[in-house]
């Protein structure tokens, strides 16, 4: 794609991207109790990145975030599978989750849940897949 020099879009993007990204992270963490979760969070993150892609170009995106998204996908899948099979170590069926409440400094009383870890895998896969698709198509000409 040709790089169009649109100052307003670029300026707005650089601010908005961060807001969207923060919102995505919030959605991800809130997912277990209120609407949100790995899917939405991941998609929202990708939407932020797509916005950067549209406002600037692929090269810029790659300078800002020099990741290979295929590896992010792999990492996500790995986290999910390992979380699910981790239950086997404790002699409970595959995919049994565990959770408990902890008093953490700064956060206060918080529940830590292995389902969250699984959701992190989902999040990474969604980001990785979406960005792989967009990037490969964008690069194709």
């Amino acid at each position: 794609m040709k790089h169009t020099n649109d100052v307003i879009l670029e300026t707005v993007t650089s601010v908005i991207t961060f807001i969207i990204f923060l919102f995505a992270v919030h959605l991800f963490f809130a997912g277990h109790y209120t609407p949100g979760g790995g899917f939405v969070g991941g998609l929202m993150t990708s939407a932020a990145l797509v916005l950067v892609l549209l406002a600037f170009d692929l090269k810029t995106l790659r300078t800002i975030l020099p990741f290979d998204y295929k590896w992010i996908t792999t990492l996500g899948l790995l986290i999910s599978v390992l979380t699910a099979s981790g239950a086997l170590l404790f002699n409970v069926p595959f995919f049994t989750h565990a959770y408990d409440y902890f008093d953490l400094p700064l956060f206060g009383k918080t529940s830590l849940h292995t389902a969250m870890l699984f959701d992190l895998g989902v999040y990474l896969v969604v980001v990785g897949v979406t960005m792989t698709i967009i990037q490969t198509i964008g690069e194709s000409d």
Binding site: F39, V126, I133
Partner: peptide, 20 residues
């Protein structure tokens, strides 16, 4: 449906690239 939405996104993308 949530699962289906995400899957259909993947499939549509695949289909698009196939056509392209």
């Amino acid at each position: 449906v949530l699962t289906a939405i995400v899957i259909s996104f993947g499939v549509t993308a695949f289909f698009l690239v196939l056509a392209y």
